[in-house]
């Protein structure tokens, strides 16, 4: 069997992005299970201490292209180099981050190689498969487990007949783990100068800058919402911490907005936005009818409130009676502990 490859993204600081280190950690485990090697691909410009950083994750080979035209990321030159490499190396599995880079380039490569690609996996496992139609048995396939239909179903996808088996995985889904600080692999260089043509540079980056995106809680799948009971703008930061680990957005009641804890664009209710997420976590919210009007169609509601008789509790699926400032950190802690 051939090896597992991970496409490593280069961060703004010109080191390897966390999502890629997480994928290397997962890739190492899969490689052990399959008895194959783990290979990393890095396309960038003067990456510091590349070998020292990557080998401890159990990387056997680093394919490195060092060319100043490769950072910041551009689709065409990166695709040209990856397609060439994969045609030569014929990987068994290739993993990408489900980021604006991975989700841009992975489908393009899958199309060129005519292989299967599974988006946004939340879990990767090795398993067998028996195809009833052809009575064919497949050993050690990559089970690519992913949510679809807006998170309403979880599908297990396999690619029985084509290679590589490719998948993208979101940041934070896999755990970053150094296997051995003294692990040693080898570096192979990719001949970017020889492989890249002028037509790979017909898209040019003119400018890049940090800019906050607009608030859009309307389409959020999970909302952590705070009321007057959260107590202060300072305490609201905790809601953002929880939202970040859950991949959620933050909402608020009018009382919280009026008290200056949160901005009006996040207000939910009759005079704010109406939301229908699959999970609504109401923190220190009494559940006035004007607020409920904007959220009572949520598929699941958790209420955190010191008052057992707060009206919100009666429409909630789960109620935690207690102080929101104690409970949120526990939720973060136990989510992290149980999610990997």
């Amino acid at each position: 069997m051939n090896n597992i490859f991970v496409y490593c993204e280069v961060s703004e600081e010109k080191s390897i992005s966390d999502v890629s280190l997480e994928l290397l950690s997962k890739g190492r485990k899969l490689a052990n299970e399959l008895g194959v090697k783990l290979e990393a691909i890095v396309l960038g410009d003067k990456i510091e201490n590349l070998e020292g950083n990557l080998y401890p994750y159990g990387v056997d080979v680093i394919h490195y292209a060092d060319d100043k035209r490769l950072f910041p990321f551009l689709t065409l030159p990166h695709s040209t180099l990856l397609i060439d490499l994969f045609k030569k190396e014929k990987p068994e599995v290739v993993l990408f981050g489900a980021t604006s880079i991975g989700r841009d380039i992975a489908p393009r490569i899958a199309s060129a190689l005519r292989c299967g690609l599974t988006a946004d996996c939340t879990s990767l496992e090795i398993g067998d498969h028996f195809e009833n139609r052809t009575q064919k048995e497949y050993k050690s396939l990559l089970y690519q487990i992913r949510p679809a239909f807006g998170g309403n179903i979880i599908a297990t996808i396999i690619n029985p007949d084509t290679r590589p088996q490719m998948a993208t995985v979101r940041e934070g889904v896999m755990k970053k783990e150094i296997v051995n600080p003294n692990y040693k692999g080898k570096l192979k260089s990719i001949d970017a100068k020889g492989l890249l043509k002028d037509e790979d540079f017909i898209v040019q980056i003119i400018e890049r800058h940090i800019e906050k995106s607009k608030v859009n809680i309307k389409n959020a799948g999970i909302i952590v919402s705070g009321g007057y009971g959260v107590g202060s703008r300072e305490n609201f930061k905790m809601l953002y911490d929880l939202a970040e680990v859950l991949g959620a957005d933050v909402g608020a009641t009018r009382a919280a907005v009026d008290a200056g804890f949160e901005d009006h664009e996040r207000q939910i209710g009759q005079t704010g936005v109406t939301v229908r997420p699959k999970l609504y976590i109401a923190c220190g919210i009494s559940g006035a009818v004007q607020h409920r009007a904007g959220m009572d169609q949520s598929a699941q509601i958790i209420s955190i409130n010191t008052d057992p008789n707060a009206p919100i509790n009666f429409i909630a699926d789960y109620t935690i009676i207690g102080n929101v400032n104690d409970i949120i950190p526990k939720m973060i802690k136990y989510y992290k502990k149980n999610s990997k």
Binding site: I157, I320, M331, Y334
Partner: peptide, 28 residues
């Protein structure tokens, strides 16, 4: 090339409301 091997429905709604305390074991 991709085949759907299995589909699981996500169970969103729960019939009765569950009451919990702020204890670690409840939150976990």
């Amino acid at each position: 090339p991709t085949k759907v091997k299995k589909i699981e429905n996500v169970v969103l709604a729960h019939k009765e409301s569950t009451r919990l305390t702020a204890d670690d074991k409840d939150v976990e």
